[in-house]
Design a protein around this nucleic acid. Structure first.
Lengths: 180, 180
DNA sequence: TCCTTCATGTAACTAGTTACATGATTAT
DNA sequence: ATAATCATGTAACTAGTTACATGAAGGA
């Protein structure tokens, strides 16, 4: 049984407290989403796999006819999760940005189009930062410092990107050369 | 025939001049790699697909028994590529960082382990920035400004990340609270 | 001689997304 | 009524990685 990062998202969310697959998805969407997105198509099968491996256990929490299954970590699950968290091994980092790809090839474009492109990129990152800031208070009002810091990382990162593109757009508009 | 970002990496590299699949891979590894990685397993089949669609054309460039196939853009290929480059539509941005995931869940770890973790992350990003800086002169000594700017983006981004983690590690070491 | 780079390719696999299906409950 | 949210799930698909295989040319 080998576990990938997505498995640990599931285990980690359950380490915070018992919850359903639906809950895990909602939580992930407002927390880990910006650096590790997960979908239902992964979560539900993964929960079953983890249960099969004895890392989580399910219990029925249906109210009336409304079905609901709550999962919680087993002792083994907690141990496996802690081992992963504590392991300082450097794991892969992946970035995929189609806009940046266009920018890379933008020398073939008229300057005006490039400027418009840069504006769009700057706005995109600003919006992403804003989106994160929207649940900043929520992150601040809970006792887990790292969750808050990771959110600040995301905000800071996207603001930095936004500024980079805005500055480049301005430089180009003013006909400033690239300083090499 | 629908083209994904990887198809455009291939087309884009050919727009810079005719080259082989091998060449495309080498070039991508020192340029687009940090925001769009490609592998042989994608490139070779993609070249055939693009040729089938009439966007590229191949010619044999074997020297003696040493085989080599060079591809170049057709007029149609150039047109399709330019249309993509010029289209300002905002496309998906994806980040996946397992270390950040660990950090997110690090509240369960002893502070000492978290500090070690932060150091490792800071170093990782510093190394990535250094790696990019290694081919900065190459990027500077060619007439395509955007390729140089995208490289500077990568260097700046990773330096920013490195600094963020280093500062956080220092703050925690000094017992400084998170400012909320 | 042997190692590295040049050069091409595929098969099997892994991970993740999307679209769809179902149906109950709660709020407007 | 009806729209939104709660809740679970799967099948088909898409994209990308890894491991392997082959072999020539060039440099140490």
């Amino acid at each position: 049984m080998d576990l990938g990062p997505t498995s640990y998202v599931v285990l980690g969310m359950l380490a915070l407290g018992p919850r359903s697959g639906y809950d895990i998805k909602q939580l992930a969407d407002v927390s880990t989403r910006h650096f590790w997105a997960v979908s239902y198509g992964q979560i539900y099968p993964e929960l079953r796999r983890l249960e099969g491996a004895g890392l989580v256990r399910s219990e029925d929490a249906s109210r009336g006819t409304r079905q609901r299954t709550i999962y919680h970590l087993t002792a083994k699950g907690k141990q496996v999760f802690n081992a992963w968290v504590g392991d300082p091994a450097i794991k892969k980092l992946e970035l995929r940005d189609e806009m940046l790809l266009k920018l890379f090839f933008a020398d073939a474009m008229p300057r005006k189009d490039t400027a418009r492109h840069l504006d769009a990129m700057s706005r995109r990152h600003h919006l992403l930062a804003e989106g994160l800031r929207a649940h900043e208070p929520m992150a601040a009002n809970q006792p887990h410092r790292m969750k808050y810091e990771v959110m600040r990382f995301g905000i800071g990162l996207h603001e930095w990107c936004s500024d980079f593109y805005a500055r480049l757009a301005r430089d180009m508009e003013q006909g400033r050369e690239a300083k090499r």
